[in-house]
Write a protein that binds this DNA or RNA. Structure first.
Lengths: 152, 152
DNA sequence: TATATTTAAGAATAAAGAGTCTTTAAACTT
DNA sequence: AAGTTTAAAGACTCTTTATTCTTAAATATA
């Protein structure tokens, strides 16, 4: 897989948060129930996003997590970087260390192009954009349920 | 990682085989030494390629592996499919089962484009082409060594 | 026939990723 | 103050991937 499961779950969760109106904190339990992701696992993932400043959290009753001001208009890239790091965008297709224009492997150029297109896509796509699209067309965000099922 | 380590090793090994002239069998031990890959691990990987008809093997003295006639002009895609399968080209970016035009997730279209470009690249790039390029420009096929170091 | 060389096959081990559980700390409610 | 709700932190377990080890089978050579 290009993205780790942690990363995929992180994207689903932040996408869901981005689709909610207002700036209420949402309990992770509620997120994990609705998105059908293990609560403890999701907690761990969201902690990473919190420590990176993409989410903010609040303990106690009416607590939970929400996107920070800067987190609201972020690209998918920032989520991916926060969870998976930049390996995907730097690794050589043949696994050679330090592969680059100076010391390329035979696939380097073609691979670099692919990586560039992935990078462009992740950088130019925002959570907000996808969340709007998800709501407008009631697209899926879980195996069964669409965005609008979950907004109730 | 987009490709598993097994797959990357499989690519390195077949690329090396494709760069050799003649149709001699090359012992896996020699391949593993030169490519700096564990012998037993590489053996297992190459067995998969043999059973798929991309390589043929011969036991005993002067035995080893070599590309089959059909294996000589294959694309990278065939190696990748033989080792990693098609998950990479079918999986949803949000991990949703059955994601597609009928029941898309919000990233589906953009993701499908990326996958398509990966597919195009893997299908249109041949081992022979990369091997030639590797030799012509003495590019790297191990951490330290170029193609021409190994052809001695 | 005996021995060396080589792939094949599968068991065993190690490492990494995924997922669970328990305890602690913060914040609220009564 | 006591109890409840919530995130934080870390230990622990399970699963998958990666890697190593062992034995068997095929082939060649002497």
């Amino acid at each position: 897989m290009l993205l780790s499961k942690s990363c995929v779950y992180g994207l689903r969760a932040t996408l869901y948060l981005a689709s909610k109106k207002g700036d209420q904190f949402m309990p992770i339990r509620q997120l994990s129930d609705r998105l059908e992701i293990s609560f403890h696992f999701l907690t761990k993932i969201l902690q990473q996003l919190t420590s990176r400043g993409l989410l903010e959290s609040y303990k106690g009753p009416n607590g939970g997590v929400r996107l920070t001001r800067s987190g609201r208009n972020i690209s998918l890239m920032e989520i991916v970087m926060a969870i998976d790091g930049d390996d995907m965008l730097t690794e050589c297709a043949l696994g050679l260390p330090g592969c680059g224009v100076m010391k390329p492997c035979p696939i380097h150029e073609k691979w670099a192009e692919i990586r560039e297109s992935i990078k462009q896509m992740l950088e130019s796509t925002t959570l907000a954009e996808l969340a709007k699209k998800g709501k407008d067309f009631d697209l899926r965000i879980t195996a069964e349920g669409g965005f609008n099922d979950l907004l109730s």
